[in-house]
Amino acid sequence: MRYETIPTTCSYCGCGCEVLLQVLDGELIGVLPSKASPINEGSLCIKGWNLHEFVVSERRLRKPMLRKGGSLVETSWEEALDEVAGRLAKIKSESGPDSIAALSSAKCTNEENYLMQRFVRAAIGTNNVDHCARL
């Protein structure tokens, strides 16, 4: 039997409210606004209060998928990663790195955005990286 609350940051809008993840026996059962946070001072909006719901949604993807014969089919990580890397390498060698582009994410963390742009610039070799900041 274990219940704890883990402070983290709301992943919806740019206000940056601090929320507490309520975790009961490893399961995310809800969120609470941080009472001590000088940003949201114990409040959240309707989106923040329901932040846990999409996390545990039935519709979350649980396995990698590759398109085979027209439809997406579940597969192993090994196969998915080899396939993606192989095809990227092939396109890069045929048409140069600038024939590849990537969209990073305003929903992902700083660290992930950093890794993404490094991946694009250093591993692929192009500056074709952007995200939907303008939206």
Binding site: T8, T9, L61, V84
Partner: peptide
Amino acid sequence: AVLPGVSFAEKDGTFTNTERRVQRVRKGI
């Protein structure tokens, strides 16, 4: 190809909010 990543609740990191505040994201599950 579709590669399943995780939500904010399943990883450590930081977000930077609209007032330039770099804030922790902490793994809960």
